[in-house]
Structures are given as structure tokens and as C-alpha cells.
Design a protein around this nucleic acid. Sequence first.
RNA 1: GCCCGGGUGGCGGAAUGGCAGACGCAGGGGACUUAAAAUCCCCUGGGGUGUAAACCCCAUGCAGGUUCGAGCCCUGCCCCGGGCACCA
Length: 848
Amino acid sequence: MGESIRKGISGEPVIDDAKERTKSLYPFHEMERRARKLWNEEGLFEIRDPMTAERPFYCLNMFPYPSGDLHVGHGRNYILGDVVTRLKRMQGHSVLTPMGWDAFGLPAENAAIEHKIHPATWTRRNIARMKEQLVSWGLAYDWNREIASCDPTYYRWTQWLFLKLYERGLAYRAKGTVNWCPSCNTVLANEQVVDGKCERCGTAVETRDLEQWYFKITAYAEPLLRDLDQLVHWPEKVRVMQTNWIGRSEGATIRFPVSGSKESIEVFTTRPDTLLGATYVVLAAEHPLISQLKERGAFPRQAADLVERLRRARLGDRFGVETEKEGAPAGIEAVHPLTGAKIPIWVANYVLMGYGTGAIMAVPAHDQRDFEFAKKYKLPIVEVVRGPDGAFDGRAAYEGEGTLVNSGAFDGLPSPEGKRAIIGALEAKSAGEASVHYRLRDWLISRQRYWGAPIPMVTCERCGVQPVPESDLPVLLPDQVEFKPTGESPLRTNEAFLNTSCPKCGGPARRESDTMDTFVDSSWYFLRFLSPKSDRVAFDSAAVNRWLPVNQYIGGVEHAILHLLYSRFMVKVLRDMGLISFSEPFERLFTQGMITKNGVKMSKSKRNTVAPDDLIQRYGTDTVRLYTLFIGPPEKDAEWNDRGVEGAYRFLQRYWKLVEDVAAARDARAARTGGKHPAWSSTGARRELRRRVHQLTAQMLADMDRLHLNTAVSGMMQLVNALQEYLDGGGDRTDPEVQEGMNIGTRLLAPLAPHTAEGAWALLGGSGSIFTAGWPEASREALERDKVTLVVQVNGKVRSSIEVPAGADRAVIEAAALADPKVRSYASGKTVAQVILVPGRLVNVVVP
RNA sequence: GCCCGGGUGGCGGAAUGGCAGACGCAGGGGACUUAAAAUCCCCUGGGGUGUAAACCCCAUGCAGGUUCGAGCCCUGCCCCGGGCACCA
């Protein structure tokens, strides 16, 4: 930032000079102070009683993790939300605009390890610092409703939710192969593993077999998928991502008996029509049948070696399309459920335990993966589906649909009928049935870390795993623990915490020492804001039902799956418990793009962050807000440019000068005339100015509604330019069109640059806060014009323009267009084939 | 590989199928000033015709198409960003 400070002749910065000068020119510091005081005193953005506040509108920004300093990229998110808040407030809504802190999480704990500072201290300090920054952006939050997820008054209810899910069988403990991040020293949910790496720190994820707590989100796979259709105000992109993540596949579950045993192998396939082409069966390395075979000593050495190797391999190395397919015979055979033929069973690296049943039927003629594998290990390939391009060529699998062949009684059926017929045949033999599988896995919520909500469960020697009674909540995080990066839960270092008594029998018991994934905290916080201090309930159902779904939710697209999916899940669970009456938490979602510097995302580690503090000090809050909004379409990424900030500053100065001029002239006139409102002019420049003001009013409302705030700022600039040009052209500052233009313009500016607009409002003689002044509406009468200019095209090329009366009919316009000298020069000697007329816009004369 | 976005001046970007480049930044010229800063005014996609007023041609990644008219719609291709990816 230092480079951008202007240098004086001597090379010394001239900031102090500039500050002095600007103080008189555009007194932003003073205005900021006064405006904030006014808003606080009036409580304009506070909801006193959620049940009686009129026309509720809930505008929410994703609450931040208190990592320390905010940069201008974060600001974009909050400023966007603030514009919506202020606009809705001006439109007469009671706006709920709360803020809180997603305050549990790893960085605090890592700070504890590195700097010997308690996570709570570190977090509190960051919250204080970040709150200061949010305030300096002029954001209108109802701070009476502030919450922090690390506060026992909050996490008590996170624990309560856990118990509710447990009661309903939606929280369960299970042993399984889980993702483990060796750097964060904890397990991760599937959603937190990206490309085999930890979503947070980028370390390659390993697998471990552990007993962990899960939330049964898969029980809601279908509603989570189906209800995406309702979310018409969500970005298409996010809905697509969630659809892919849930990953619904329709097909059939088929059981292949194991030859000479009572066992059978269950497989899932989306292509039951290819069943007759199944020439072998493949098991994943972790398939339970393998350990049984091992126990019996019936598992070939070669296969056992492969399984061992795969289990040790890192997740990222093991899977991927580039990985060479590898397998070994499992030493047993399966019986084809329809033909009775014996086919070999293999173990291979290309089948995953985490999807379907962990076993597949291989149809090499119609699945490229099976095809490659069959080629490599010389397994039989049988064509059973014939596509439109003729018979299977033996070079690659044919994966499309077609007509069944080599399928006995099913020959000649098209694939869809074939699927139904084969499923029917399987059902008749109880060998299979139609089924649906999802890619979505259950949500692993245990974390072997300290700074999170303790899982409220105990293990009794006699009664087993028992929930902590609701009345005993919260299970408090003890202060005294050792922070060591050992991979063991730090809570295990506190014996007093661990040792407890069984809620059922009173005997000795041990507390669960893991804490919950912080995404549990954030999956319900939007409900808490309606009753942030309640020690009676997690959330006030009546108030929540009145205010939710959140009308406008704003945040980064990086939460497209994690937070947004979990929140949707939680809301559906709470609905099914009868605690809330809606099914989706967020009606409208807006995902803003990030701000880059030198082409890359701003981050502390890249040392390319732009801090708001200096800029706000030097140019004022509203300058920074305006530039941040103007930088580009809010859903797209944008490059920060310090020179652009100066442009916004120049604009506000020009605007302010105009306010002072117009206000002074108005006062002078009022003194002369006793404040009588003069009449509108119906002609000329005055009329045109008024039309322009109202036209921009309409445009800016449309822009703001769509959150196209870059063009809204542009519209504001045009409005000021129009007024300035009118005055420069000899217009009178006391003309009612000018006075009205300033009045309307100032209200239009208010959501964007609230402090400046508030200051201007006072100067222009407005009463009270501008945010109670109402939103200006474009007057239909002002928008009317008596003459319109039409573009005249010949064969689609612009050649001229004509002016016609506004209501002119077709014949008049055509005649005027054809009479135009330019048109005549292009059309002379030719017959006019057609005249296209677009009312109010253009005439196109078509000649051969 | 599949699924989304996106490609427009020197830059950020505007444009319900109807005057491409609004608005701003940067740049050039001028006014003010002893000078600079700040401010204000004018110019600013490329090429061409004209003394001038004016006028013409080209131009929204590339190639086609639909249309009276395409940055916008359709087909194919290239490039950039994001998501998913042995998902059975």
C-alpha cells in the first residue's frame, strides 16, 4: 500500500496536506461520525420485537471465522449485504441484519500450539479487531444480536442439536475407514477432501480405521436433491454442484451367489440391461468378504499382497483415471444369477468401497474400465448391447444404449425395456431389485481437536454409550488441556474432564473426548439470531417461522457444498421434528466473486492483501464502499486497482460540492420566496433533466434489485453528471428539477454511500434519517416524452436518425424515414421490400 | 473425459435480438498556477476519404448458420477459469 501514497517533491508523502485540504472539501470523517451516531440513536437497524416488526426481511452475510485482519476482498461480501439491508429498509421493511462469529476452529488451536496463547484469548482478540473493521465499513448490523459459536451459551445448543439428532437415530457412532489429515491431526468429512488433499491445508489425506460419530445426511439425500428445484433464486452453478455431490444413480442391486458357499456378493449397476454380458465380479480392497476369506485361509497370496498395498496407499495416489488398473483373482467364483454360469471373482484397485456396495459386476464390452481390465488380464468379453453403429468392434467398450443381443430371452429388446425385463427376472428369483444409489456419504462430525463443541456423550463401563442429559448441558470445554500436535484429542489430557458418572446408572464413565466439526456450529446459526440470548431454547420457533427462510443470503462460492448442504440438511431435520415449518434455510443466495491483487486471490501467505484501514482513513468509508461496488459485476472475480479508489473519491467530492451549491441556492431562494414550490417546466432542458433523473431512478432500482451494483454506481455517476451538465449549461440551481434531482439522487445514493447521503440529506433540508425517507419512485409522467428519436437503418446498417412525435403511427414514421435524405441516397431507384419498426427505437428500411 | 461459467478498447467493464464500447481508470491536449498538486474543459477502438462540414469501411476468441438486424440465438472449433472424475 505504501507505494500508492502520493509523494511530494522531496519524496515525502503528502498525506497530511491532503487530509487538511479534503477536510473542507468533503468532510467525510465528520459525516461518518454523525451518521453512525444518528443510526445508533434511532436504532434503525435493530429489531426489538421479531413478532411485531412489520414487513420482515432477513438479510444475512455468512458469518466469518475470526482469523484476524479483514482485507478489501472480505469487505465486498459485507458491503453487498449492507446495500441490500439499507435498500430494503428504505423500502419500508424491518430488516434483520445480524452478525456473528464462526469462532471455533483449527487456526485458534494452532495459534495455541505455536504461540502459547489460549484459543479463547486469541479468538476474542480477533473478534474485537474484526468487529472494529466491520464498523469502519459502515455496515448496519444489529449488534444486540451478536453471537459467537465458541460461547457456551451458543454451543450448549449445538450440543442440544446433537442430542436431538441422536434421539432420532440421525447421529450414530460407527467404525469405518476415514480420511485423516496428518497435518491437522484430525479426521475429515468427505466434503473436506479435495483431490485427495485436505481442503484446509492441502496436505495429502491418509486413511485410518476409526470409530467415529456421523450424522446420517444420506437419509435426506432424496429431499436434499429434490428440493434444489425450489431454489430458483440460487445460482445455477451451486445447484449443479450440489446435484453432482449428491450424485443420484438409478439402477439395480444384484446378488451374485458365491459358488460353494452360502454367501453372496451384492453389486450395484446402472446398466442391468448388460447383465448377460457380466463375465466376472470385482471386489474393492476393503470389501468385508475379503477378511472372511482371509480368516478361512482361502485367500490367494497374490491378492492379499495387493489388498495390503492398496490399503496403505495414500488416498490421492490410489485413485484417479490415470492410475493403471491392477487386480488379482480372489480364488473363488460367483454364480451368474440368470444363467447359472460360474464367473471368476477378482480384487482390483478400480473398485471403491466408498460407493455402491464395494463390488461390481464387470461388463467389459460395455464399460471402458472393465474393458481395459479384461484386456489386461485376458478375461472374456461378451457383447450384449448393439448400438446404432453396428457390432462391437473389440477396440473399445460401447457404453451407449441399444438393442440387446446374446441375452437369451431378452434379445431384441431396447435397453430401457431390457432393464425393466431383467430387473423383473431378478425379482422373480429374489436375486435383485431396482434400486437407487447416492454418491453422498454420511457426515463424519468427530474431530480430534480441542477448539470445538464437545460431543455430549459418555461411555459407561456397564451401560455403554450414553447421551448427556439435556439438563446437564453445556458440556463445558475445560480450560486446562495440553496442546500438542499428537493426533490425540487434547481433551484426553484433562482427567477431570474425562472422568464422569453415567447418567443412567451413576457408575464411573468417560466422556467423549472428540469435538464436533465446526460446520455443525454453522449449520444452524441463522436460526439463533432471532433469539440470540435465550437460555430456554436453541431458537424461538415462532420468530424463526416468521422470519425465515433468509430472504437474502450472501457469501463465497467456496461454501457451495459444505456449509450450504449441511444447513439444508439441518433445516429439514428440524422441520421433521416439528420445530420449524419451512424446508429450506435460504430463499435467495448470492455468491460473490473474490477480489484479486496482481491476478491472484488475496491472502496473508501471498502478502498481497489490501487492508481497508488506511484507505478508509484517507478517502473515507464511502469511497471504499463505492469503489468496491463499482469494481465489477459482484458475482465475478475482480482485480483491485488503487487508482480506481481515487476515481470513486473524485466522484464523491464532485457530488458533495454539488450538494453544497444546491443547498445554498435553495436556502437563498427560500429566504426570498417563503419556500413556495415552483412549477415544473414542461419543455426544454429542464424537462429533459427531469426525465433523465427519473429514468435513472428506474434503472438504479432495477440494478439494485438484481444486485448489479456496479451499474447502479454508474447510474449514480450519470445522474450527477446530468445535473452538473445542466448547471454548466446555464441551468439555475434553484430550478425545481435540480432540487428534485438532488433529493432523489441523494436517496438513491444512500444504500451505496450511506454516510455521505445522510450528510447531504441534512444539508438539503431533509428531516430525520435518510433511511426513513422512503425510496424514490420514477414518475411515469416525468418519463413521458413528446418526441422520440428513432435510429434509421437501411438493410440493418445505421444510416441516419429521425425525430417523430411520441405517439406517431406507423405510416407517419415510415414516411419520415423514407423522406430522410440519407435513406433516399441508399434506396434510390430500388423498391422498398419491407420496413421494420421497433417502437421507440428504430426503423429498418429493407431494400433489395 | 464429463458438467458449468467466461473470452468486448491500453485497463475494469456497459449493452430485454435493435446506434457496440455506458460509467470509471489510464493516456494525450488545454485552462488555472511562478511551478507543481488538486480542480475544470476537450480528445481518446482500428483504418480510410475530405480544405471543411461531413462521410465510408473494419471491429465483441475463430469458422459457419438463423434473422430485416447477432456481442447476445444455433452448430463446430480454439483459449481461460471453476466443479466433478476409475461413482459401477
